[in-house]
Amino acid sequence: MTDKMYTAKIEMVEVGPRDGLQNEKVSISTADKIALVERAIEAGSRRIEVTSFVNPRAVPQMADADAVCAGLPARQDVTYIGLVMNGRGAERAIETGRIHQLGAVAVSTDTFAMANQGQTSDGSVDASCDIIARANAAGLTGQATIAASFGCPFEGEVGEDRVVAMAAALATAEPVEIALADTIGVANPAHVSRLVARVLEAIDPLPVRVHFHNTRGTGLANVWAAIGAGATVVDASIGGLGGCPFAPGAAGNVATEDVAYMLERAGISTGLDLDRLIETNRWLSGVMGKPLPAMVGKAGGFPQAREETEKESA
């Protein structure tokens, strides 16, 4: 694999306000959630998953979805994404008047699909297609994520053919893209390269987005492998927070700072300001009352030459 195979630019989707916070036990105020969105925008984020429209008894952290949406800054250049699981959630998101894109979730296995959203795997594909149709009918856009694309917390191995077939079925609903999610962080770069390439071929000309958790430390390697195989959109969470309430063992997403550092140093543009991301990491650490997993948040960016540092401090 040579450098010529890598794109010059990657679109980043900031999922911290939703996926980053949904599994946290500390209650985060609506004001802080809105502030996180605002800080992400200041750092260059232009697609942000701001909340989810789900049963608040199941995911208490997202109970203020409507209030978060009401407080979002009005921006013509930012796409706000709301995650929804069913028709009722889709209608709630549409009714806010602030969500631009609905995110649907299909799950690769029956056991996880039942735990996550109370339906079979095939049922989750049908529901996702309905959500995308509702989004398009309302003048919004829709996207779909295939959860547990690389392994299931309940059933273990997931066949690649199954994921490819799901992607092809979802593509018929005309989403803007289809994402492959490593919900429990079990993927490896070889598997990622193979599956991304197969799904791209199956859904052409739709793009593939990827969503990795760093549960076993392979998240950044998997991002690199996915981009090499043709993925053009990457989900990440400021600070590396994240997890699924219905997937035992799921840990944080790949950190936005870490992905941005890796790609920018490799000559791949993300449109993100690393210094502002690091500042937001420190702010969010204070909100959460704990250090965050992101490595670049701890170590900082690439060191400046001493002469440059002295000029800046003069």
Rank of each mutant, 00 (worst) to 15 (best):
D161F: 06
G82H: 04
V105G: 00
T30W: 02
V15Y: 01
E312I: 12
L21Q: 04
W224Q: 14
D32W: 00
G159I: 01
T96Q: 13
A40Q: 13
S285E: 12
C129H: 01
V84A: 03
P205S: 11
E308I: 15
P303Q: 10
I227M: 04
L220M: 15
I178P: 09
A63L: 07
I34G: 08
G142K: 11
L83T: 12
V68L: 09
A93K: 01
D66Y: 01
P189N: 04
T141F: 03
E257V: 14
F246S: 10
V199N: 04
R46V: 13
P205H: 05
T7D: 00
G242S: 06
M5V: 09
A251N: 14
S52C: 15
P153L: 10
P56G: 09
G249S: 07
L83A: 14
D122T: 03
V223I: 11
E279M: 06
T2W: 04
G240S: 06
A190Q: 14
E95I: 00
G286A: 08
P60R: 06
V37T: 05
V107N: 11
V164P: 09
A63M: 08
G139H: 04
M5T: 13
V37I: 13
I132T: 13
L83V: 15
S237K: 07
F154C: 10
A226E: 02
N86A: 12
G142C: 09
A135S: 12
G230N: 08
E95K: 04
A137N: 14
V287C: 04
G151T: 00
A104P: 08
A8F: 00
T51W: 03
F154R: 05
K298T: 07
A247R: 08
V13F: 13
V26N: 07
V68D: 09
G300L: 08
I203L: 06
D66C: 07
Y6S: 05
A8H: 10
A255R: 01
A74G: 03
R276C: 12
G151N: 05
G286H: 05
M262S: 07
V163H: 02
V54S: 11
V296N: 06
W283C: 11
M1W: 06
K4P: 00
A197K: 12
G252P: 09
I48S: 05
A58V: 08
E308M: 11
D77I: 12
F53P: 13
